[in-house]
Nucleic acid binder design. Structure first.
Length: 463
RNA sequence: GGCCCCGUCGUCUAGCGGCCCAGGACGCCGCCCUCUCAAGGCGGUAGCGCCGGUUCAAAUCCGGUCGGGGCUACCA
């Protein structure tokens, strides 16, 4: 099977997504990719979800403008019922007035499905009567699946499923088929949980006199307990990842790797290459666990690969209200531009940028009790005093600042690593952070001295 | 219960009968580098669920078994 390069790449991202959000994908015979959300409850009750999902899809590069909408909201209602009537006229469907309770009473089994009671009762249409598809008694329906090969379903095991409700409304199974036929869909790509529906739908395609589409049931995504991801239980919304500072490119790259791998030992692969290399037939059929740790690692790689200006641009949402802990007036883009390159290798997710640079925009260093007690041990007060004295007149440059601090440390028999700790905490409030001397240069002599002095007083006051 | 799917390091995977006493990546652990933390470099850890069979040769083929998952609605 051949696909146009562009949609194929999307298909797989979509696969992961379809599991996350009940998206299904379909390819029309003119090559148009159609996205469809299959969770009509969400569509009906929370229309804003659709906008959110479509925008999230766009975020990772999937064109949501071809979105078709859930079948219930489509204009195909007439075609749906017409198809149901054709099936009835052909004798491929029959009316049934059994209630769920009736069936259970007869079969004594909650899970056995319909027993075919009304098959030959010759019931006509009527209020409260459902229309059921008459599944073949013998033979088998083989679903040729692009990712799993041939799957055989014994027809005898396929129950006479409902096509139309007692009130005449059409069910998903049929509506879906009719819409797909109407749109000349050639490929149905969806999550594995739909596999049991495929033989039923294929039977309908055939009964309606059409050539069934190519099916591709992609692996589901599971949680650490190996259960299918669920919206209630697991964090699955793509929007959440965007909000947490993951880059779209990293996200889509990671998603592609779930159930599929590029040739060679490559994992970080440009989107264009993914798109040309991806083939549905190569998708691994087993369920995959969504590993946030690995996503995070990928995100770090993508962040580091960003050009400096781009990195700065991506950080913006976290540097301004309401995310930023400082007031807008205190933020200085020029200062940030100096700090950004130092921070770029140190953030795995964008929001981490805040803790890296906040010392420069907050009026005072952040309060961190643990950092303070750890750094302000014994000779801290003396070191602070000596450094303050030395820094009062050094040329305000990185290497000079370093030399002076190193000298102070030596006087106390401390390595630079040990000696810098009190100064770092005094100035930034944190025990870890950007390279210290570059940070001091950006902060400026006056403010640096002020903070060192404040810390010294506090240490001696406590002592 | 029935039907269906799946089964390689903890995780995502490469592998499609000999190149594999199984390769890559994330994680984890060391070492180097180093003003902290990262980044970077080097090294390590760990896997073919099990049992039979086919074959000179099996992670790769076949059967069984065990385990996991999905579906089983007049939901989608």
């Amino acid at each position: 099977m051949r696909f146009a390069p562009s949609p194929t790449g999307m298909f797989h991202v979509g696969s992961a997504r379809s599991v996350l959000f009940n998206w299904a994908f379909a390819l029309q015979n003119d090559g148009t990719l159609v996205l469809r959300i299959e969770d009509t409850d969400a569509a009906r009750n929370r229309p804003e979800w659709i906008d959110g999902i479509v925008s999230a899809m766009a975020w990772i590069g999937i064109d949501g403008s071809k979105y078709e909408g859930p079948f219930r909201q489509s204009d195909n209602r007439d075609k749906h019922t017409a198809a149901a009537q054709r099936l009835y006229a052909q004798g491929r469907a029959y009316y049934c007035d059994c209630t769920r309770e009736d069936v259970i009473a007869r079969t004594g089994d909650q899970h056995r499905g319909y027993d075919g009671f009304c098959r030959d009762r010759g019931l006509g249409p009527g209020e409260g009567r459902a229309l059921r598809f008459r599944a073949p008694d013998e033979g088998a329906t083989v679903v040729n699946d692009l990712v799993r090969g041939e799957t055989v379903f014994e027809n005898a095991a396929i129950e006479d499923f409902v096509l139309t409700r007692g009130d005449g409304s059409v069910l998903f199974l049929l509506g879906n088929v009719v819409d797909d036929m109407d749109q000349r869909i050639t490929h149905v790509i969806r999550g594995e949980e739909h596999l049991p529906n495929a033989p039923k739908q294929q039977l309908m395609w055939e009964a309606l006199g059409a050539q069934p589409p190519a099916w591709a049931h992609l692996p589901v995504l599971v949680n650490e307990k190996r259960q299918k991801l669920s919206k209630r239980r697991d964090k699955v919304a793509l929007e959440d990842f965007r909000a947490e500072g993951y880059l779209a490119a990293a996200m889509r790259n990671y998603l592609m790797l779930l159930g599929w791998a590029p040739k060679g030992d490559r994992e970080i692969v440009p989107w264009d290459e993914m798109v040309t290399e991806f083939r549905l037939e190569d998708v691994n059929p087993s369920p995959a666990f969504f590993d946030v740790k690995k996503l995070r690692a990928f995100n770090g790689e993508y962040i580091r690969a960003l050009p400096a200006e781009e990195f700065i641009a991506q950080c913006q949402p976290w540097l301004t209200a309401p995310a930023a802990p400082w007031s807008a007036e205190r933020f200085d883009p020029a200062v940030f531009a100096e700090l950004a390159p130092l921070a770029q290798t140190r953030v795995a997710v964008l929001p981490e940028i805040v803790a890296m640079v906040d010392f420069a925009f907050l009026p005072d260093p952040v309060e961190d009790e643990a950092a303070w007690t750890k750094a302000m041990r014994e000779p801290a007060a003396d070191i602070l005093a000596d450094v303050a004295a030395a820094y009062a007149e050094v040329p305000w440059q990185g290497d000079a600042l370093r030399e002076r601090l190193e000298a102070v440390g030596t006087a106390y028999g401390l390595s630079l690593g040990k000696a810098q700790a009190p100064v770092r905490v005094a100035v930034t409030g944190r025990t870890v952070g950007l390279p210290l001397f570059e940070s001091l240069v950006v902060l400026g002599r006056t403010e640096t001295l002020r903070r060192i002095e404040a810390a010294r007083e506090r240490v001696t006051g406590l002592a």
